[in-house]
Design a protein around this nucleic acid. Sequence first.
DNA 1: TGGCAGGCCAATT
DNA 2: AATTGGCCTGCC
Length: 282
Amino acid sequence: MFITIEDDFDLEKIRMSGQCFRVKELNDRWYRFITGNHVLYIRKDADKRYEVSCDEMTFHDIWHPYFDLDRNYEAVRQSVRTDNEYILDAVEAGKGIRVLRQDAWETLITFILSQRKSIPAIANNVETLARLGGHLIETDYESLFTFPTPREFMRIEMGMLKAAGVGYRLPYICDARDKVSSGEIDLAAMEKLSDEGLFDMLKTIYGVGNKIANCVCLYAYGRISRVPIDTWIRKVINNTCEGRNPFPGFGDVAGVIQQYVFYTEQMRKRGIRKTETEDRAG
DNA sequence: TGGCAGGCCAATT
DNA sequence: AATTGGCCTGCC
């Protein structure tokens, strides 16, 4: 099936924007996304035109909200008022990124795991958990494992969980698992909380601090005013804003601006690393 | 080979 | 309120 997307939409930038750890670039410019029991294969066909592997109803119900397609990102970009050249450049460089609306449970566990880990290490971890506790789904092209639901997660034996390479985060993910399973944390009901209420509730989980709570607010609940401040964003604040956090100035879309900046830093880091490798080889 | 990675908690001042 | 050490493990 073919669809039209008028607004900013760049699959490669979305993949590299660091929100999601199971996106994969396949052959022939196809991209694969996974959420819950759903798998999407998608590729750009022409300007604003995309080929997708699902039917119209599934796209409308699952992927349209996943890609946050009701929001006008062009308008978000144009709302930016700043004299910070770095941020203006980052907004332009990040054009095409969407802040994905991912499954809250998977986002919670994934970002708990993310602390002091490299992106490849996180991705490997998530795949390991999927194999351990998820269930097999067959697409037309491959078979793969879903991320384990809370119920499935409860069935993973402690020994296996320890061996999954989660390290000192083990008690953190166990606390998240237990609070969600018992209903003490109701991820679905938290949808109706205010941004602050949601943030505070997430922080009651052992191992969830400001950064990770904001990640879940932003990447699972679409709270695009939230700005997770990690080492990269901190570095930008220190280097280009003399330590003064500029993000509150972007108001209710600050989280989107943060995503453009984060993406820019990732690209810069990769560029430097590539150069270093080439230098070493040469 | 070992330093370091998308933080957090707890113990100190 | 602000600062600091320690933490599991795997990737480059």
